[in-house]
């Protein structure tokens, strides 16, 4: 009797069952949804594969992707950052305010990024030294940060037409490839390297997986946590500046509005566990593309924009469910 239990089941149905569906869904759930979506697009919208659509999609993905990459790191450390949109607004506001007051555009951008890094520093310090839950700290920055951005901004709707920012938004390398896509690929490459190759990322995952144990193996939890939120802030800054460059306009009230939702959704779909301990960069990239694609598809099919939200909700639930089964 006992022996039978251990004998592998050789019937064909048993074999079929033994392909671990759960595992496939768990590991490739996001990718599967992704494929399904593309197929759905292709079938429903003939124009989908035209180059224009693809480029628009990629440009749309840009800010969400950058923010989601930062969010991935934050979530893998066991935290959350809902202040990302506000940080985008602050960095954008600082950049434009300095530029319009006569500072050079490179230095302005540098200061914008620096301001975002400061916001990240603030988040990280409060979380690691004062032991306040990440969601509260970043909630404070979210509420106060946008007000601050609005205060920094001189004119509510500054136009940046015919400025270096506008050029940056329109510039195409060799006349073909938008510079934004190149920047995006570069950031992805850097983040992949960081997560796969550095001690910093291992320490981050360790803190996310078991903060107490991390301290006891000598991980510097303070600098690591601060580092995580600073990196996230800097990525938000790049996303913010690139966005204002693309639309040649700054509106501190709307810039990066609700982007935290899309970013968190992208991370969730990408399979980075919210309990921390693992950062899945490739998953997040897929997740971000899915989140944007949903919007694009809904738009192309001339459905009201709001369907996108409902679909995103469904996709998040399905993705989470698929990962749970593992």
């Amino acid at each position: 009797m006992d022996r039978n239990v251990n004998t592998p089941i050789n019937t064909s149905t048993g074999w079929l069952k033994s392909i671990a569906w759960a595992e496939i869904l768990g590991n490739y759930g996001a990718q599967l949804v992704f494929l399904t979506l593309i197929a759905a697009c292709a079938l429903s919208t003939p124009k989908f594969f035209s180059l224009g659509t693809l480029e628009i999609t990629l440009l749309d993905v840009f800010p969400v992707m950058l923010v989601a990459l930062g969010m991935t790191l934050v979530i893998s450390s066991g935290g959350i950052d809902i202040s990302v949109g506000a940080i985008m607004a602050i960095s954008g506001a600082v950049t434009v305010a300095l530029y319009t007051s006569g500072v050079g555009w490179v230095l302005s951008m540098g200061c914008g990024i620096g301001a975002a890094a400061l916001c990240g520093l603030f988040n990280g310090v409060l979380i690691s030294i004062f032991r306040i839950q990440p969601i509260i700290v970043t909630l404070v920055v979210m509420i106060a940060g946008r007000g601050l951005a609005r205060r920094i901004q001189v004119d509510p709707t500054t136009s940046l037409k015919s400025t270096p920012f506008d050029t940056l938004g329109l510039y195409r390398i060799a006349g073909k490839v938008p510079v934004q896509i190149v920047i995006m690929l570069a950031v992805i490459a850097v983040m992949l390297f960081v997560v796969k190759k550095t001690v910093f990322a291992k320490n981050t995952e360790a803190i996310g997986d078991n903060p107490r144990a991390a301290r006891l193996v000598g991980v510097n939890t303070l600098t690591t946590t601060v580092g995580v939120y600073v990196v996230c802030g800097v990525l938000c800054a790049i996303a913010g500046i690139m966005t204002i460059a693309r639309i040649a306009q700054l509106n501190a009230v709307t810039l990066g509005g609700f982007i935290e939702l899309d970013a968190i959704a992208a991370v969730a779909i990408g399979g980075t566990p919210f309990s921390g301990g693992r950062a899945r960069i490739l998953g997040t990239i897929t997740g971000a593309i899915i989140v944007i694609l949903v919007g694009v598809i809904v738009g192309l099919n001339k459905m009201p924009d709001d369907y996108a939200k409902v679909f995103k909700a469904l996709i998040i639930v399905i993705a989470m469910w698929a990962q749970r089964r593992k």
Binding site: E205, A206, D209, N210, R212, A213, A214, L216, P273, S275, G276, G277, R278
Partner: peptide, 8 residues
């Protein structure tokens, strides 16, 4: 609580 990183 103080040793393992279970998911790593």
């Amino acid at each position: 609580e103080e040793g393992l990183f279970p998911n790593m």
